[in-house]
Simulated assay, not measured.
Amino acid sequence: MKIKAVIAAVVLAALSLTGCSAPSEKGLEYLQEEEYDKAIEEFQKAVDKDDNPGDAYRGIGIAKWEQEDYEGALEAFKSALENGAEKTGTLYNFIGCCALRVGDASSALNYFNLGISQEDNSEELLQEMKFNVVSAYEQMEDWESAMSKLQEYLQEYPDDEKAQKEMTFLETRL
């Protein structure tokens, strides 16, 4: 995922909101500065105060993702959903990517599909999630489904060189 762009978008959106709490603002600043432990600490303060916990958990998830703590990020992102964070394609994609990283391809597939169904997706995010669906099927060793999804993907994005290479790989699996 192109995390730096996601962090910038999250920071800009949060700072444009009125009523954003001090811990969340500080947490966003720490995310931008790549001081992830401090960001987690600030977002946790917001969670503890029950001050927009959904967004605070999302911030914790992003920080843990950047630290490559995928289990921790997965837990935080799920907590974000449970605590009222907006259900966006970006959030579902994060959850799906975390699930893939911890070896739960079946759950990842579900989250990618939920993400694809959201209305807020940019074309770039939609393309990424569709490719991630292929990756989830591959991790499950469901080569036929992976091939089918990759063929659909390549019809939509024929110039994607990474996907073309993936087709060569999948052809060796069937």
Rank of each mutant, 00 (worst) to 15 (best):
131 F>S: 06
30 Y>I: 00
149 K>R: 15
48 D>C: 05
27 G>T: 04
79 S>H: 01
45 K>N: 09
54 G>Q: 02
83 N>M: 02
143 W>E: 00
30 Y>P: 02
102 V>P: 08
28 L>S: 06
27 G>L: 05
104 D>Q: 13
142 D>S: 11
42 E>Q: 15
116 I>K: 07
52 N>T: 10
116 I>F: 06
28 L>E: 03
47 V>M: 05
56 A>L: 05
113 N>W: 07
111 Y>I: 03
151 Q>A: 14
144 E>V: 14
147 M>S: 15
67 Q>T: 05
65 W>I: 02
171 E>Q: 15
90 T>W: 06
40 I>D: 11
134 V>T: 08
142 D>P: 03
19 G>D: 05
119 E>I: 03
88 T>P: 04
149 K>G: 00
34 E>M: 11
92 Y>G: 02
129 M>F: 04
75 E>P: 01
99 A>L: 01
53 P>C: 06
27 G>P: 04
42 E>V: 04
124 E>M: 05
168 T>D: 14
77 F>L: 03
96 G>M: 08
104 D>F: 09
135 S>L: 15
169 F>Q: 08
164 Q>Y: 09
133 V>Y: 05
75 E>T: 14
62 I>Y: 12
6 V>W: 11
7 I>L: 09
31 L>R: 09
77 F>R: 03
47 V>S: 06
115 G>F: 00
22 A>S: 12
87 K>N: 04
21 S>I: 07
71 E>D: 12
98 C>Y: 06
28 L>A: 09
29 E>Q: 10
50 D>F: 02
71 E>Q: 13
92 Y>E: 00
162 K>V: 14
96 G>E: 07
159 D>M: 10
146 A>R: 07
169 F>A: 07
134 V>C: 10
20 C>Y: 11
111 Y>S: 04
31 L>M: 08
31 L>Y: 08
25 E>G: 10
35 E>N: 15
35 E>D: 14
124 E>R: 09
